[in-house]
């Protein structure tokens, strides 16, 4: 009887240590890179849908609050600096670091504004997102891990393919650096719009976006 009790104690101890060990382990050790990226994306997308569906923001007067809150949620898994850098292409290097962060701030607001405005007044309760596949792409020369996640968004009886390109810098979490909707890369599309404007000063770009947001 005593022997059995001792055995029980030992097994409990082992179990406890094991549990502690698993809990203590960072999730990246337990999950492969592709599932990790997908989880970040799923949680992120769901957190934004929750904000957009929140009845507390249903009134038009909360429009700005709604945008700012969803934007702050988005910042956790979108790398808007990388979006801005990709969009500006060669122009980026003419920006001082202050101008870069200012541009990034307004550019992320522009993106948020447009997509929230599109979804405004439409119920997102029937939105259905299917995660089709996650592909790990070769890391960049500087060691940034990359993944491409294909999804299909089914809303209002229309299916739209949406691909997310995600990256993981050393010591950071997975973040989106480009979104492709029906094969059209958002960053690439802005990049083409800015491509021929190498003579414009950085302030002009910033001013232009500011005005665009105010519209």
């Amino acid at each position: 009887m005593e022997k059995l009790l001792a055995f029980n104690k030992v097994s409990t101890a082992i179990f406890t240590i094991l549990t502690l060990f698993i809990v203590w382990l960072p999730p990246s050790v337990l999950l492969s890179a592709d599932t990790e990226a997908e989880i970040v994306l799923r949680n992120g997308v769901n957190s934004i849908i929750d904000v957009l569906n929140d009845p507390a923001f249903a009134d038009k007067s909360h429009k700005e609050a709604k945008r700012d809150i969803s934007l702050s949620k988005a910042e956790a898994f979108f790398d808007f600096k990388e979006f801005s850098r990709g969009a500006l292409g060669q122009n980026w290097r003419q920006f001082s670091s202050g101008q870069q962060s200012e541009f990034t701030k307004y550019f992320s607001q522009l993106i948020a504004n447009t997509y929230i405005a599109r979804l405004d007044g439409e119920s997102l309760n029937d939105i259905k997102i299917t995660y089709l596949k996650t592909e790990i792409i070769d890391a960049t020369k500087s060691g940034i891990e990359r993944a491409e996640i294909s999804t299909e968004v089914f809303h209002n009886k229309i299916a739209t393919p949406v691909h997310y390109r995600m990256m993981k810098k050393k010591g950071e979490s997975w973040k989106i650096y480009d979104v492709k909707i029906e094969g059209v890369s958002l960053v690439g599309n802005y990049r083409e719009q800015y491509r021929t404007r190498f003579n414009d000063p950085p302030d002009k770009f910033i001013q232009e976006i500011k005005e665009k947001i105010a519209q």
């Binding site: 447009t114 405005a117 029906e182 059209v184 890369s185 599309n189 802005y190 083409e192 719009q193 800015y194």
Partner: peptide, 18 residues
């Protein structure tokens, strides 16, 4: 159109990419 800074270029590039 609202998202674009230069709608003509945005639609052109969007079409080509698609």
């Amino acid at each position: 159109k609202d998202a674009a800074l230069d709608p003509y270029v945005a639609f052109k590039n969007g079409y080509i990419q698609m």
